[in-house]
Design a protein around this nucleic acid. Structure first.
Lengths: 340, 340
DNA sequence: CCATTCTTTGCACGCGCGAGCAAGAAAAAT
DNA sequence: ATTTTTCTTGCTCGCGCGTGCAAAGAATGG
């Protein structure tokens, strides 16, 4: 009357290590060892187990594994600012490289209205091994107080700076980068730059702005005027730059717009061309930052600076797997095109 | 000599329901109920528990919860094709809305070289409640054979079609959309369209192409020529369209390029303007599909068609939470701008 | 006041696997 | 052949929580 044990073998895809163990004639722990690199197991058993696993369609349950081992091999990527195409580049690189090294990525959307706190909390509830805040604007101060920030094991600020002592910064070296841009502009004879920055909130530490401004004043003695656009978005940049240039006589006009990133630079070029009817770079030059794909298109040919994303991701892996525990700022690559 | 129980309270952030239970003077299960909506619990106990939890910095462990309940509230978003900015729009919408409804999102990068199989397997190992393949190219046939495809509970094809019977399609209604674009073009007097499609792999079911072609031939009796560009990428589109037009006399030239999506359309416009030196739309008009942010910029002003992403995401939620179990094709919105 | 009903609380068991140790098997050394 | 060393395997216990049921408590009706 009782069912034979064979018929109780799960067919709905939920094959456990016990099933494989039974099929291979070994214990559950030998199955586990077969799937673990560098485990102490004979070649023969491993082959038996792998064969049985393949036959049954078994794959280790990472959830149960995480629970038991207190290591999830999962990192949370926390971001907002989804209208900057550079985010896509960052996400592509991060997910691809992390995945190739066995790390899963939890994408957490941090809406602009709330702070990062809720996002961090959610991440910690999934037991991520680290949370990576990707180049987003947010108020640093919440990192001191937010429950989520305390609960998460490691906190990394990626492609951005934070003064918070509990975080690790991995970013492009903006000082070196902006100096290179400035040197290029000085060499090309530009003398009246305006820096076009993103939103002027206290939360955003605008390193590029100050890095450029300080270097420029040291080289020329002149202060660099700054305007802030309301969003990291080309639409906002068009408005901001149009306002800046609308009433200026040719003599008053800047001769180059140094933009905090490419998406602003592209808006700036659009404004110069389509709102003001001027030419880039003959009337006004433009530089960007990030080297998003569009910057290479014949419509823009933007002079910009490429962040070393692959290198930054390698550093992130070092931090995840090894002991890297101090801030890292890597140099990127200056990209000279036709916009300046 | 024995440590007082109080001192054993975890201070490293790993507060469990037991700790909260002890602090609140209730059982562990009452703590669980306090955090569960619609649970049978008195208001008084809930308040006590919440207060204690707040004091200790407790939040339920979703990993353990998933393991115990066989429900992870996690969906895998599987995608490749990271150089189409439309992906960013999709990811933004999906993560934001899913998150607001309590769903976490695992972003899985599916490299173009491999098939979706590995990505699906990885997702299934994390016990996702559903895997969502987002508008990516991949070979449908693997869905029949891939281990991961069998292991995953639900499989959704989002913003794309698949004939596979085990999947659920949630997409924009391309037939309606392309008809609307065709009607617009016919009304505006265009008569010699060329359809610019993405890569011509057997894996990509090019519904837009056939939807447009079939409707056009029904309306005019004329076949629509098709070219394929090698990537969903504006660089590839520039090459493809330049090749198409390079040797054509004005009389041979198409009068409108109907593109499979915006990123191809933008490449097409760049080719027409910067490689051929012609004007859009006076010499050649262009239409796209997706309505990516850039399409609204003054540099392009692309006529296109916006997918109903929010509506599609709502349908996805219905499928996740309720019983929706059949394909859904929603109408989007035709966007008329200056490129046609 | 007691019987009945509804609400609230506690509990045994299990989810699938990992750490760390101890027993067993095999290989090497004496 | 016996002892020692090395390799391989099995096992106990627990990770933090959910399910489903039973006990306890509160509320209701007669």
């Amino acid at each position: 009357m009782s069912l034979p044990p064979e018929s109780s073998r799960p067919s709905d895809g939920s094959v456990t290590a016990d099933d494989v163990a039974a099929a291979a004639g070994v214990s559950r722990w030998t199955v586990a060892r077969a799937f673990k690199k560098d485990a102490s197991i004979s070649r023969k058993s491993r082959e038996k187990v792998i064969a049985a696993a393949e036959r049954l369609g078994y794959a280790p349950d990472l959830l149960a594994s995480s629970l038991a081992s207190d290591r999830s091999n999962l990192v949370a990527l926390i971001t907002n600012d989804f209208n900057n195409p550079h985010k896509l580049v960052l996400l592509e690189r991060l997910t691809r490289i992390l995945w190739s090294r066995g790390w899963g990525t939890l994408l957490v959307h941090m809406s602009d209205s709330e702070d990062a706190s809720a996002a961090l909390l959610a991440a910690s509830q999934r037991r991520v091994d680290a949370a990576v805040l990707i180049g987003t604007r947010f108020d640093d101060r919440i990192l001191d107080t937010a429950l989520g920030a305390r609960r998460v094991k490691k906190l990394v600020i990626f492609a951005r700076y934070s003064q918070n002592p509990n975080t690790l910064n991995i970013a492009c070296d903006d000082v070196v980068a902006m100096r290179q841009i400035a040197d290029h502009l000085l060499g090309a004879g530009y003398s009246r730059p305006v820096f076009v920055a993103g939103p002027d909130t206290q939360s955003a530490k605008l390193h590029r702005k100050s890095a450029f401004g300080e270097y420029w004043i040291r080289q020329t003695g002149n202060e660099v005027p700054v305007i802030h656009v309301t969003e990291y978005d080309f639409g906002a940049a068009i408005h901001g730059v149009t306002d800046l240039l609308a009433d200026a006589t040719p003599a008053q006009r800047p001769d180059v717009l140094v933009c905090e990133n490419d998406i602003i630079a592209i808006g700036a070029m659009d404004a110069v061309r389509y709102r003001l009817g001027l030419r880039v770079p003959q009337d006004i030059a433009v530089t960007g930052f990030d080297d998003i794909p569009l910057s290479a298109s014949p419509a823009y040919l933007l002079t910009t600076y490429r962040q070393p994303i692959t290198g930054m991701t390698e550093k992130l892996l070092e931090m995840l797997e090894g002991g890297l525990s101090e801030d890292v700022f890597l140099p990127g690559q200056f990209i000279l095109r036709n916009s300046s």
